[in-house]
Amino acid sequence: MKVIDLTHFISEDMPVYPGTEGPKFKPANSYEVDGFKETLMTMYTHTGTHMDPPAHLFAGRTTLDQFPITQFVGKALVVDCSDLKEGQRITMDSISKNKDKADQAEFILFRLGWDKYWGTEQYFGDYPYIDDEVVDFLIKGNKKGVGLDVIGIDPIPDENLPIHKRLFKENEIVVIENLMNLDLVGSDLFIFCALPLKHIDADGSPIRAIAILD
């Protein structure tokens, strides 16, 4: 068995979505004073490698804590789209290269190679994004989730978030953003685990995402 970490480190200087604050780490207890070390960590629920549920956009829809734990584990496939240039769409052409496996997968993870820009201004650039036909494929295939190695499934300038809305309006699906190391997984199906923090009324959560290969 081989385990690959698909999760970025959380740090005070990490990239965060425009308009939000980065995480803060404040010493709360020390070895010298208290005999143990503890840190107060403050951050948004959509910090770093994280997961969005339908309740992120729609009141009354499913929060992460309302999903069964099985929602966060399953067969996954990485779709390599690293040949796409800035601003290009991810189309069914990319999925069709491995369609049989894509049909079997419960999670579709799109590799754009954007994780190499983590920590630079280019990470917030004009990254490729999925088109309507790909959204239809995810919905009709009853996928548990879709993930990418970019900061958002919608382009940053599009504040209306149409892709999020189409996925979340009526479907029980999660969106995973800011993945990394998808180039290490290969082109076969594998077990994907993306576990959010278990807190009440979760509109999102940082996750520890891993790939488990035979």
Rank of each mutant, 00 (worst) to 15 (best):
H46K: 13
D52Q: 12
T7F: 01
E106S: 13
Q104N: 05
T45D: 09
L57I: 03
I200M: 00
E133R: 03
L138R: 01
L161F: 14
F107M: 00
E86L: 11
E21L: 15
T91I: 10
F124G: 02
V33W: 03
G113D: 08
L77D: 02
N160H: 00
M1Y: 00
D203R: 13
I200C: 05
S94Q: 13
N178K: 11
L161Q: 00
I10E: 03
H50T: 10
K198E: 14
A105Y: 08
Y127I: 01
S30F: 01
I130F: 05
L112E: 04
L213Q: 01
I200Q: 03
S187C: 06
P15F: 13
I130H: 04
Y17G: 04
M1F: 11
L161T: 02
I10P: 09
I212G: 04
T70V: 05
V185K: 02
L77K: 10
D34H: 14
G19I: 04
L167V: 04
P206Q: 02
L189W: 06
A202E: 05
D132R: 12
L57N: 11
T120H: 01
P68M: 06
D93P: 05
D34V: 02
K75M: 05
V146P: 11
V79T: 07
I90R: 05
N98H: 05
D131R: 10
I139C: 00
A102S: 01
A55F: 10
I153N: 11
N171P: 00
A211V: 03
H164V: 04
V135L: 13
G87T: 10
F168N: 07
A102T: 06
I173W: 09
L148F: 15
D132I: 02
K101G: 05
L77H: 05
N181Q: 08
G152I: 10
Y129L: 10
H46N: 15
F36H: 15
F72N: 08
F67S: 01
T91Q: 09
P53V: 03
P155I: 01
I173H: 01
K26W: 11
K85W: 12
G22F: 11
T91R: 04
N98L: 03
G204Q: 08
V135D: 14
I200R: 14
N142Q: 14
Y31W: 05
E172H: 07
M43C: 13
H164Y: 15
I95M: 11
A59Y: 11
P27T: 13
D136N: 15
D158Q: 13
G60N: 12
I130S: 02
I10F: 04
L40P: 02
A55G: 00
R208W: 14
K24C: 09
D103I: 15
I4F: 06
L84Y: 06
G113K: 07
D80R: 05
I176P: 07
T62Y: 10
A28F: 15
M43D: 02
H56M: 08
D103W: 08
S187N: 15
P196G: 08
K169W: 01
S205T: 04
H164D: 13
I163N: 06
W114L: 12
G19K: 07
G22K: 15
T7A: 03
L84A: 09
I207K: 09
F107G: 08
V134K: 09
G60T: 05
L6F: 09
Y127W: 14
D201M: 06
E38V: 08
Q66K: 15
I176Y: 04
Y17C: 07
V79K: 06
V134P: 01
Y17M: 13
D52K: 07
P18R: 06
Y44I: 00
Y17N: 00
